[in-house]
């Protein structure tokens, strides 16, 4: 649904986006992560045909971003970094205005506006001036605006950054539901938990370059290694590390726990359990230590700091 090949954007002498390639199939979510000023917003703006790339090409929903900008924009719903609402308008007028811009029929405009407002818990604020909205409400309304014309592609810049946990969950649920309905999402966010939860694929951008991309599991394996397992015993047990050293390479340990990496948990874990129980030690838990996107992200960025330009990896 989104195919970008070597998109590059230069502002005067500043290389903002450097040969970024992305592929987001229909019905999937890509989370574009990166530090501030990495080129996330510029990439989104190029895909929305607001900025023209200096080189490279891309298609969104089958339309070329250079040759068919109006068609691309008709297929895309965009939540911008700044919500940019017209503060003197009421929500109902605001959505009606954007509905007209997208050439929706009057009845359809109203129906969709009411449905979406209801979905995001804004029904009671329909007749309020937008200047009176809280930050979170403004963000939800901006999201409603992006979804109003039922676009097949949604580009969301920090979709839940200003929301309370309940509202953020509403938004995440909406994204998951729409994804099931074959909508395609590109989300830029600093919320790594959310990205991990929503995204089928992660791309990390730094200084305008994609420095890593792939599914979370692939990136985790590539950048933070094999899964780490933790075994906890009921009581302190001296010599455990030594007793299992022929089975696993222990990375860290305490009085009543050990951690180790394994590429083959299906054979190693049962063997380890048999060994430990055979030694008369009661096992409380044997579980994987969860790897987070934060670990992956920090590792990727750390590695990139020591890598010269053009050192792109792909997961």
């Amino acid at each position: 649904m989104i195919e970008a090949y070597e998109l590059t954007k230069v502002f005067d002498d500043f290389l903002a986006v450097d040969r970024v390639s992305l592929s987001i199939p229909a019905g999937s979510v890509l989370a574009l992560l990166g530090p501030n000023g990495a080129g996330k917003t510029t990439t989104v703006r190029m895909l929305t045909c607001i900025l023209a790339p200096n080189s490279g090409r891309a298609t969104v929903a089958g339309y070329d971003i250079i040759e068919q900008p109006e068609q691309v924009r008709a297929q895309v719903g965009v939540l911008t970094e700044q919500h940019g609402l017209y503060e003197r308008m009421k929500a109902v007028e605001y959505l009606d205005f954007f509905g007209r811009v997208y050439r929706l029929e009057a009845a359809e405009r109203r129906r969709r506006a009411l449905n979406l407002m209801d979905r995001f818990g804004l029904t009671n604020a329909l007749d309020k001036r937008l200047g009176e909205y809280s930050k979170g409400m403004k963000q939800k309304l901006a999201l409603v605006r992006a979804m109003l014309h039922n676009p097949p592609v949604l580009l969301l810049d920090e979709p839940t950054s200003a929301m309370d946990p309940h509202s953020a969950k509403l938004v995440r649920d909406a994204i998951i539901e729409l994804q099931r309905d074959e909508r395609t999402f590109l989300i830029t966010t600093h919320n790594l938990t959310e990205a991990q939860q929503l995204a089928d694929k992660i791309a990390i951008i730094r200084s305008g370059r994609i420095i890593a991309s792939g599914a979370f599991e692939e990136l985790a394996r590539q950048f933070v290694g094999d899964p780490v397992m933790e075994l906890r015993t009921a009581a302190p047990f001296n010599g455990l590390v030594k007793d299992v050293s022929d089975l696993v390479m222990v990375e860290s340990s305490g009085d009543d726990w050990i951690r180790y990496r394994t590429t083959d948990p299906y054979s190693i874990n049962p063997a380890l359990l048999r060994r430990v129980t055979g030694l008369g030690v009661d096992v409380v838990t044997l579980a994987p230590v969860s790897q987070t996107l934060e670990d992956v992200y920090l590792q990727v960025v750390k590695e990139d700091e020591g890598v010269p330009a053009n050192g792109e990896r792909s997961g």
């Binding site: 929305t48 607001i50 109006e70 068609q71 924009r73 008709a74 895309v76 965009v78 911008t80 970094e81 700044q82 919500h83 940019g84 609402l85 017209y86 503060e87 954007f98 811009v101 997208y102 901006a142 605006r145």
Partner: peptide, 14 residues
């Protein structure tokens, strides 16, 4: 200045 232009620029309007 109010940043309300970008949502408008993201629409199909020429």
């Amino acid at each position: 200045e109010r940043r309300s232009l970008e949502p408008l620029l993201s629409t199909p309007l020429t």
